[in-house]
Design a protein around this nucleic acid. Structure first.
Length: 179
DNA sequence: CGCATTTGACCAGCGC
DNA sequence: GCGCTGGTCAAATGCG
């Protein structure tokens, strides 16, 4: 519950310079990647960020919407299968704006208020067909100048716009998250 | 008119 | 077993 990001983003505080080019200062941003077996010893309860579980296999190809709201639809999980946890990559960015234009086109599909944080968390999904890459954007309550963007999945299609250096970063992300 | 955003509800996992 | 929290869906709404 107590989200302080103990080990994740250590030196987030003591940053007073919110001058910041809004685009992206990679120098200040920290990247990290995790893999599915990573948090086996994760006794951290709240861990609202990188310990989150990925419920369904996110294959919206068939996407039989049994309307979850109806009743006992759930997703039929394989009896022997463990839950698959897709790799994620989180970036901490110092920016005034929440929406970091990384060259892809995103559609917002949800927003939730997180505990111990006055700012909501926004959920985005890539609008490209067949691309199920998701990202979530959150702003630290401690530092409103810090925006944490978590990417989940890899893009398998070219970037629409040319956002110079961010494309390079995306490439590195794919290296990190390669499984 | 088409698409993106908003927003409330639902559901699953986990902790107590 | 209950309640909390995070994640997602989908209808309604807004905007270009």
């Amino acid at each position: 519950m107590e989200i302080n990001y103990p080990n994740l983003f250590p030196s987030s505080s003591s940053s007073t310079s919110s001058g910041s080019s809004l685009s992206l200062n990679i120098a200040n941003s920290q990247s990290l990647s995790e893999f599915q077996e990573n948090n086996a010893n994760n006794k951290q309860s709240g861990d609202g960020f990188l310990g989150l579980t990925t419920p369904r296999s996110s294959d919206q190809t068939d996407h039989h919407h049994d309307h979850q709201q109806a009743s006992s639809a759930h997703h039929n999980k394989k009896k022997g299968e463990k839950k698959i946890r897709k790799p994620r990559c989180a970036f901490q960015t110092r920016s005034q704006v929440d929406i970091l234009d990384d060259g892809y086109r995103w559609r917002k599909y949800g927003q939730k208020a997180v505990k111990n944080n006055i700012f909501p968390r926004s959920y985005y999904r890539c609008t490209h067909q067949g691309c199920s890459v998701k990202k979530q954007v959150q702003r630290l309550s401690k530092d409103e100048g810090v925006v944490v963007t978590t990417y989940e999945g890899m893009h398998s299609h070219p970037i629409e716009k040319s956002t110079d250096n961010f494309e390079h970063i995306l490439t590195q992300m794919q290296i990190y998250t390669s499984f």
